[in-house]
């Protein structure tokens, strides 16, 4: 009887965790499949939705599919550029919102929240409507994609940096000024190092949002092909296995960055 009760209690204690882990597995199954398929040799069959034979060739020749690597490079270019601009503008705005009181601050907060709460299809078609109405309908491409990406990354940057800034004790800056640091020195010696993790996280988020965006990009890209658009284009015909290589690499790089950062902070605390 007590054994049964103990078993019941054990299940009660661990049931939620077990279910949570199951959800976690659900989230990772597709990624595991992507990794697996990056080693799939489908040269003997046209079926791209089943694992046929093991091969290294997708990894050895990632650029074999026509236009894929160009699309990846273009996505990286747009991603870096959009990240740079969005991170700078967004960080400045976050400082304004946290550290300065000005007329229209709450309105600004609302406008910043809206892009995160609007369906991409609506934002994308609005932007397209603007470009068409202002005569850029025929000149869609790199620049219009860049504009769109900065637009939707901005809100995420502002929110991320704001969170970090809000958690920053203003006493620290006052302490620095009390200890003979000028405003400039205070910013670079105290404020910036403490806000930097937030800025870095915002930049990482921006890049991945930009690199991954399809719906808004597709509406405003004209003839320019980004990596997600390439995938969309080939998805109808059957994707080349090298797409899975790119997916795997993206996943590994981001895990490396995020886990590395986590271990670094943990080590600092433990030291």
């Amino acid at each position: 009887m007590t054994g049964l009760q103990r078993a019941g209690r054990w299940i009660g204690e661990h049931l939620v965790l077990a279910l949570g882990l199951l959800v976690m597995v659900y989230m990772f199954v597709p990624i595991a499949v992507v990794m697996l398929m990056s080693f799939n040799d489908n040269s003997k069959s046209r079926n791209v939705y089943a694992f046929q034979d093991f091969t290294w060739s997708n990894w050895a020749h990632p650029c074999r599919p026509n236009g894929m690597c160009d699309a990846v490079v273009r996505s990286i270019e747009i991603g870096l550029l959009a990240t740079l601009v969005a991170t700078i503008l967004g960080s400045l705005a976050a400082f304004a919102l946290v550290r300065h009181d000005f007329v229209g601050r709450s309105a600004a907060n609302t406008v910043i929240f809206l892009p995160m709460a609007s369906p991409e299809i609506v934002m994308g078609s609005s932007l397209l409507a603007l470009f068409v109405a202002s005569g850029f309908g025929g000149r869609l491409g790199f620049v219009t994609i860049f504009i769109a990406h900065v637009m939707f990354c901005l809100s995420f940057v502002i929110v991320t940096v704001k969170a970090r800034l809000t958690g920053l004790d203003e006493n620290l800056e006052q302490a620095a000024m009390d200890l003979y640091a000028s405003e400039w020195t205070t910013f670079w010696r105290v404020t910036f190092p403490l806000v930097f993790p937030g800025v870095a996280a915002a930049a990482l988020l921006s890049f991945s949002l930009s690199f991954d965006d399809f719906i808004i990009t597709n509406l405003n890209a004209g003839q320019t092909v980004t990596f997600p658009m390439f995938v969309w284009g080939v998805a109808q015909r059957g994707i080349p296995m090298q797409v899975n290589v790119v997916g795997t690499v993206m996943f590994l790089i981001s895990m490396f960055l995020v886990l590395g950062n986590m271990l670094a902070t943990r080590k600092k605390v433990a030291a």
Binding site: P30, F214, P228, V231, S254, M262
Partner: peptide, 17 residues
Amino acid sequence: VLVIAPFFTSFLIRTLS
């Protein structure tokens, strides 16, 4: 971290998966 990790892998590729 693992919850947000899929964020960083292409939406399209994961859906195709």
